[in-house]
């Protein structure tokens, strides 16, 4: 027998750690990023390398300031994941300073100032994204036209020039254009949905050209997370369900008053990324099973309302932040019935 202080029961552990959870989520972003890279070219790769690196650097710097050993915390991969998710949300034309600023906002302001992992009330990646969107609306909404829609994707050198901020060298407007959701907001005019679908090249089979692949990729990753039980089914199911239901109700048979068919919404914008990777961030989501149903439905509904009625083409980030606000209240109202207790 040894002299170490006796630990209480249980003395056995499943053996899955927090960092494994984060690593699985990172792994699940691979199909989505592959689709992003395929559709939007080198800019995606620059973001993917640069933003997480900035996030890790910010985390290390703050931990140093807080006089904590940085390595154990960096190893939990949470900052890396925040960086990767922010990279997925940034447009592929984003210059380097946008990614750096976004990571600083996400890691320093939204995460570490609240006490680090587990203590942040708001999703760090979405705080970074929303702040950038409010501060730099032009840079943040300058999406490339997907492959096979525009003339061509910028080649490596052009993309690098964009990333390094020397956009004056390249005629940027030749490559960029409105996304499918933006087209629906702005160009529907007096046309019916079918007419718009005929006329607009950015609309693909169900949704935005290219975007349907990106969303399909994130859906695939999300299904992998569900299969590995990293996330619960509740949030994605009710989020996408609410989005589909509301868009179906407002579809109006495809008239000119329509806000777009359900498939456009499900496979357009950041729907799948938001449903499987952003809204399911456990730290900031509602925590009971019933609470998660409500939380997902809330985010889905707010996303649709923002897409339909606000001046932004997409609303996932704001909807998630609103959901974060509501999460503690939802938790309070959805306590499960304890075993043996009468209702």
């Amino acid at each position: 027998m040894n002299n170490r202080a006796a630990a209480g029961s249980p003395h056995m552990h499943l053996g899955h750690g927090t960092s494994q959870v984060m690593q699985l989520v990172l792994l699940a972003t691979v199909p989505g990023f592959t689709a992003l890279f395929f559709c939007f070219g080198w800019g995606v790769l620059f973001n993917l390398l640069w933003v997480p690196a900035c996030a890790l650097a910010c985390e290390a710097a703050v931990l140093k300031l807080r006089q904590r050993p940085p390595l154990p915390t960096l190893r939990d991969c949470s900052a890396l994941l925040t960086g990767v998710l922010l990279a997925a949300a940034l447009p592929p034309t984003a210059p380097w300073w946008l990614g750096l600023l976004g990571s600083m906002l996400a890691i320093v302001l939204a995460k570490q100032l609240y006490g680090g992992l587990g203590f942040n009330p708001f999703n760090p990646a979405m705080v970074g994204y929303a702040a950038l969107l409010l501060a730099f609306p032009v840079e943040m909404t300058r999406w490339l036209l997907p492959r096979d829609v525009g003339d061509a994707l910028p080649d490596f050198a052009t993309a690098l020039g964009l990333f390094l901020g020397r956009e004056t060298l390249t005629p940027i407007d030749a490559y960029t254009g409105a996304t499918a959701l933006a087209v629906f907001r702005e160009e529907l005019g007096g046309q019916t949905v079918a007419e718009l679908w005929q006329s607009s090249p950015v609309l693909g089979r169900w949704s935005g050209a290219g975007w349907e692949w990106v969303n399909g990729g994130f859906l695939l990753g999300g299904l992998f997370l569900l299969y590995r039980r990293v996330i619960g089914w509740q949030i994605p199911a009710t989020l996408l369900g609410a989005l589909a239901l509301l868009s179906a109700l407002c579809h109006d048979g495809g008239s000119s008053a329509s806000h777009g068919p359900p498939l456009l919404h499900l496979f357009g914008g950041a729907s799948m990324l938001g449903a499987f990777f952003i809204a399911t961030d456990p730290v900031t989501a509602a925590t009971s099973a019933r609470g998660r149903l409500v939380y997902g439905a809330l985010i889905g509904s707010v996303t649709f309302c923002l897409r339909a009625f606000s001046s932004y083409p997409d609303g996932v980030a704001f909807a998630v932040l609103l959901g974060n606000f509501a999460a503690p209240f939802i938790d309070r109202c959805t306590q499960p019935r304890v075993q043996g207790q009468q209702q």
Binding site: V21, F119, S288, Q339
Partner: peptide, 23 residues
């Protein structure tokens, strides 16, 4: 023996396995 504990990320696995349905 388990490694040193890390902050709770509210993943909810504990609530999923609690036989009394606590949180």
């Amino acid at each position: 023996r388990p490694p040193p504990s890390q902050p709770c990320i509210r993943c909810g696995l504990c609530a999923d396995v609690c036989p009394v349905r606590l949180l």
